[in-house]
Amino acid sequence: PGLLEPTSTLVRVAKSASTLGIAIEGGANTRQPLPRIVTIQRGGSAHNCGQLKVGQVILEVNGATMRGREHRDAARLIAEAFKTKERDHVDFLVTEFN
């Protein structure tokens, strides 16, 4: 990737447990403008997936950008992506860079 294009990774999280099991902080108009993973709970779908890590910043969820979304809006979008029965997975585009 180019210097102005930080590395991002697409992670598909299968809904393998009844919870997603991540905690996020941040959102538009806060010190952390994009949601960042601060906790991954053991036994949750995200933990089972094994590819999401604490500190990663979430750029997109199922192709929808997180940019410009306030915290509650970002959290709602992720919760709905996990809850919907239309898909058996949630796609996260994440980056290590903040």
Partner: peptide, 15 residues
């Protein structure tokens, strides 16, 4: 940089 410092911290949500 100044602006960054004035922005509030975020709440944390468990999902």
């Amino acid at each position: 940089r100044e602006k960054r410092l004035t922005l509030p911290p975020s709440e944390i949500t468990l999902l």
